[in-house]
Design a protein around this nucleic acid. Structure first.
Length: 266
DNA sequence: ATGACTACTCCCAGTAGA
């Protein structure tokens, strides 16, 4: 079972690269962020033709998330609990059935939060608290659970090529990192970090100032696993070569393999 | 260095991203 996350920065601009990458990496479940379109404008038929079930939670212009799955969804649910006045399309949960039981995947696009000290930062921190509450509820189910998406959090100095450039940024402020640690301490494993202590595991390079050419990257796209998922982890990967393709997103896909004992990659 | 680049939008200068 291969599960991937990718912030595509407009699915309509990225559809050709998305199709190429789906064929190359053949993930079973994909979490997409920043699709930047309403549900009806999502290129669902092309993706369905590759054998995926598609669930979309979009909005006009900004944000928007989607789930693709080769396994049929038992359930999909948009929106993160606790935000009655939150109109941003940033969260979509899906459940599929494995022989051993349910597998739950939450696709999320956590707010950027810049500039620090603004209403946007307050919104980010409140959103993280809602995510912590959601996680503590779901962990009670004692199921395989994967939180996958663009967290807009640099967890640690080794997750940035130039950490000093980010010290006043909403992605790296102490309060942001404290919320992320609280999320992990609730019982989640950062899959990429479970597999490697290396630096240079970046998932985002800015379009500006030659960031890609200088490898001035940060690691902000994550897959966080419940114990029942982490016990099945066999591989992780970051498809950084996709950043070098023509007309790339500024983020690249990140993926994990989970062993459920009977699917095609186990 | 008030920058740089990309994508969006009642179409094109302003907003957002990170």
């Amino acid at each position: 079972m291969r599960i991937a996350t990718w912030n595509v920065n407009s699915v309509r601009q990225r559809i050709d690269l998305l199709m190429t990458w789906l064929k190359e990496r053949s993930p079973d479940i994909v979490c997409l962020q920043e699709i930047k379109c309403v549900d009806d404008a999502f290129p669902r038929f092309e993706i369905e033709a590759l054998g995926y079930n598609v669930a979309v939670h979009g909005q006009k212009t900004f944000n928007g998330v989607a789930l693709l799955s080769k396994y049929p969804f038992d359930e999909t649910r948009p929106r993160l609990a606790g935000g009655d006045d939150d109109s941003h399309a940033r969260f979509l949960e899906g459940v599929v059935s494995m022989p051993s039981g349910a597998l739950r995947v939450a696709c999320l696009y956590l707010p950027n939060g810049n500039p620090a000290g603004s209403d946007k930062y307050t919104y980010k921190i409140n959103w993280m608290k809602r995510l912590i509450n959601y996680t503590s509820e779901r962990l009670k189910l004692e199921e395989p659970l994967v939180l996958a998406g663009d967290f807009n959090v640099i967890p640690d100095a080794r997750d940035a090529r130039n950490p000093n450039a980010w010290v006043n940024d909403a992605l790296f402020l102490p309060q942001t990192r404290a919320c992320f640690r609280e999320l992990l301490h609730g019982g989640l494993t950062d899959a990429v970090r479970a597999a490697s202590d290396a630096g240079d595991l970046y998932t985002f390079w800015d379009y500006q100032a030659g960031a890609w050419q200088k490898n001035d990257g940060i690691r902000i796209d994550h897959l966080l696993l419940s114990a029942q998922a982490a016990d099945r982890l066999t591989a992780t990967g970051i498809d950084r070569h996709v950043r070098g393709w023509e007309k790339p997103s500024d983020h690249v896909p990140v993926w994990i393999d989970l062993d459920f004992g009977s699917s095609r990659r186990d």
